[in-house]
Amino acid sequence: KKLRTVGNPDTRFQEDALRLLRGLRFVNVLNQKLLTTTKKKKPDPTDKVRLFDFEPETWKSIKSNHTLLKTIAKERIKEELTKAFSQGNPFGLIGLLDEAEMLAILFPALALTKHVDQPIRYHPFDIYSHIILTLYHLQEINQNYLVRFAMLYHDVGKVGQYAEYGKNLSKEEIRTLLAGPLNHRFSSAVLAEEDFRKLGFSHKEIEEIQRYIREHHTPGEILLGNPQNRAKRLRKLLSEAGFERVNNLLDINIADRMGMYNPLQNASDLSDSRYLKKLLLDLEQEEGQFRAKDLAIKGKDIMEHFHLKPGKIIGELLEVALDRVLGDIKNRNKPDQIFANLANHLKNLSNRDGTHSSTQEK
Rank of each mutant, 00 (worst) to 15 (best):
D301Y: 14
Q360E: 14
H130G: 09
N28A: 01
R148D: 03
R175A: 14
L177T: 09
D256G: 13
Q337Y: 10
T5N: 03
L237A: 09
P9I: 00
R245A: 14
L24F: 00
T176N: 15
Y122M: 12
A296V: 02
K83G: 04
I94A: 05
R257I: 03
H137R: 15
K40H: 11
H123S: 14
H356E: 03
V156R: 09
K83W: 06
R291A: 09
K40I: 02
I209L: 11
G315I: 07
S202T: 11
D272Q: 14
K236I: 04
L191I: 01
Q360A: 15
S268Y: 13
L152I: 04
N144L: 02
G7N: 08
E99A: 11
L3G: 00
L224N: 11
L110M: 11
Q228Y: 07
I209N: 10
G180P: 06
T67F: 06
L276T: 00
G157L: 02
R22S: 03
I131Y: 03
G157T: 04
L96D: 00
G88Y: 07
A241F: 08
Y261K: 15
E287K: 00
D272M: 06
L93F: 07
K83A: 08
D323E: 13
T82G: 02
F54H: 00
E75H: 13
R211H: 15
K362Q: 15
F149D: 01
Y165D: 07
R50Q: 14
G166T: 05
K41F: 03
E80R: 05
I302M: 12
K232G: 07
L3H: 00
D47M: 06
L177F: 01
R274C: 07
L35F: 08
L97F: 02
L349V: 12
I297M: 06
N28V: 01
R50D: 13
Q161A: 09
Y128H: 14
L349C: 09
